[in-house]
Computed example of a mutant assay.
Amino acid sequence: MKNLKFGSKIVFIINSLVAFLLLVSYVLPYIPPKSFATLSVLSLSVPLLILLNVIFFIYWLLRVKKQLILSLVVLLLGWNYISSMYKFSSSKNIEDADNISVMSFNVRLFNKFEWLPSKTVKEEIINLIKSEQPDLLCLQEYRTGDPIVLDGYYNYNAFPVDRTVKWGQAIYSKFPIVNSGSLEFPNTYNNGIFVDIVKQKDTIRLYTLHLQSSGIQTDVENLKKETSGNLFKQVGSTFKRQQDQVELFLEHKSKSPHKAIVTGDFNNTAYSYIYKEIKGDDLVDAFEEAGNGFGKTYDFKFFPLRIDFILAHKDFAVNGFKTFEDRLSDHYPIKAILKLH
């Protein structure tokens, strides 16, 4: 570093800080938010930290400086993080008569409060579903008081405990539903629901979860009004509540004898304790198995956020995955193609 000019020394100091933060983030999936809530918030910035380290690596590479080693080593140590953020391979698309298509989408109340200028959002969502014809469809922030009708589907939807809330979640299935229920998260409008569906001789448990949201508006103008201290406090508190919700979910899932598919809006990233606990040792991430590109599922202006997931039991082969670009909500729909071995 002593051979660097003053400006380059400043750049390397910033580079070192960014590399250190990314390195610290590698341990976040193993730290419960209840133990260290403030640190767990760092998981949201992992995509940005990865991109910054890539930029620093390219910067030093173009200048032919050995300082490139710092970001290179940190990036290589977290290669799984990079592959979770961006898939360099093209999407799989394996046709098989035994495939099951699973679609998940946070529909944001079908644009009830006109966040989007279009007046036909609900109709466009229905048209998308009819076009894709998923075998299993999971919808979060579904308006239970204004249901959608889909021919050829069984369906189950559930309100949260508070019956004054007219939204919840819904599952539609082309296969018979033989069991269903709701996971009631305490002191919140969020919840999880499940169904057991029968495909030929197999019974499959399908969950869709809508975990606690921070309630922070993510557009630039609203973020400017928030102090960093308030952001950390609010997001940290949210992650603690998510931990409680995940613990309830895992207890429920442990009592099921069936192989599971877990979908939903986790309101957290693939670099978090929350995601690691839900995924466990028995589920695989359909995007990581068969997706491509960034896999962005949330409309956040600064960097690609993937907070909506389709996880399937490891006995499922993932034969395809798609992230849709249709802007019909603040989330983007996702669909996985699965085959049970």
Rank of each mutant, 00 (worst) to 15 (best):
T227R: 04
F20I: 14
G264E: 00
D151C: 08
D162R: 06
F324L: 08
L68D: 04
K314S: 12
F175M: 06
Q140N: 12
G236L: 02
L72H: 03
L116C: 01
L116N: 00
R306G: 03
F324P: 02
Q169Y: 10
K174Q: 09
Y26R: 06
H258W: 13
A170E: 04
E226Y: 14
I129V: 08
A97T: 11
D146H: 09
D281Q: 13
L139K: 04
R143L: 10
N187I: 09
P47E: 04
Q243H: 04
S83R: 12
Q217K: 14
I82C: 09
G280N: 03
D219P: 04
R205I: 01
V246C: 02
W167V: 05
Y332E: 05
D202Q: 13
S16W: 01
N111E: 08
S237T: 12
F88D: 07
Q217I: 12
I50F: 02
R163F: 09
R108M: 11
V46P: 01
R205N: 10
A336I: 04
V54N: 05
E123M: 08
V73H: 05
P304K: 06
I10Y: 06
N267L: 11
T263E: 07
Y207E: 07
K279Y: 06
Y81G: 05
K2E: 15
N3F: 13
H252E: 13
N106R: 03
V284I: 15
D96V: 03
V161P: 00
F6A: 12
F302Y: 15
G264Y: 02
T297C: 04
F232Y: 14
K233C: 05
A158D: 03
H210F: 03
Y271N: 07
Q67T: 11
G152N: 03
T238I: 03
F303W: 07
A97L: 11
S71D: 00
L44R: 00
E289G: 04
V284L: 14
I31R: 01
L77K: 00
H341A: 11
V198M: 07
I55D: 08
